[in-house]
Computed example of a mutant assay.
Amino acid sequence: MERFFLYDDIEENKTRFVSFMGENQRYDLAILQSVRFYGKVLVLDMQHNRFAILGTDDLDEPGYLEQVYNRPPEEAQEIREYLYELIG
């Protein structure tokens, strides 16, 4: 059977690994910047094995980070504040 690819691209991208302490929690994130995401970034939460493609519009959406990263509001807010500094 022949595979039907929608796309199979190789590109250079920029990846940043960040580890920081919040009030009560450590965060380990990988942030990938690629032209594929149309100005947004792919943010991987390496501790909880979750990821999302985020832009400032997503950061502004109430409860969005809490849902995609399965984090309580206080922890999601710490991630949100860091990402605003990075991509805002």
Rank of each mutant, 00 (worst) to 15 (best):
E2Q: 11
E2G: 04
F4A: 14
F5R: 13
L6E: 11
L6A: 09
Y7H: 14
D8A: 14
I10H: 11
E11W: 00
K14N: 14
K14T: 15
T15L: 06
F17W: 14
F17T: 12
F17P: 10
S19D: 04
S19R: 12
F20H: 10
F20K: 12
M21A: 12
M21C: 06
M21P: 00
G22M: 05
E23G: 03
N24S: 07
Q25F: 01
R26K: 12
Y27E: 05
A30S: 15
A30D: 08
I31N: 05
I31T: 03
L32K: 07
L32R: 10
S34F: 08
S34Q: 08
V35H: 10
V35N: 13
R36T: 00
F37A: 14
F37Y: 12
Y38F: 15
Y38W: 04
Y38R: 11
G39D: 03
G39Y: 02
G39Q: 03
K40W: 01
K40L: 03
L42Y: 01
L42W: 01
L44H: 06
L44D: 02
D45I: 07
M46R: 12
M46S: 06
M46A: 08
Q47S: 13
N49I: 05
N49R: 14
N49E: 10
R50F: 01
F51G: 15
F51R: 13
F51Q: 15
A52V: 03
A52K: 09
A52N: 10
I53A: 04
I53H: 03
G55D: 01
G55Q: 06
G55R: 07
T56F: 04
T56M: 09
T56I: 15
D57L: 14
D57Q: 15
L59G: 02
L59E: 03
P62T: 04
P62Q: 07
G63K: 01
L65D: 00
E66Q: 08
V68Y: 00
N70R: 14
N70P: 06
N70E: 13
R71G: 03
P72I: 01
P72K: 00
P72M: 01
E75M: 02
E75K: 06
E75H: 05
A76F: 05
A76Q: 04
Q77V: 00
E78M: 02
I79V: 13
R80V: 09
R80E: 05
E81L: 08
Y82S: 10
G88F: 05
G88C: 07
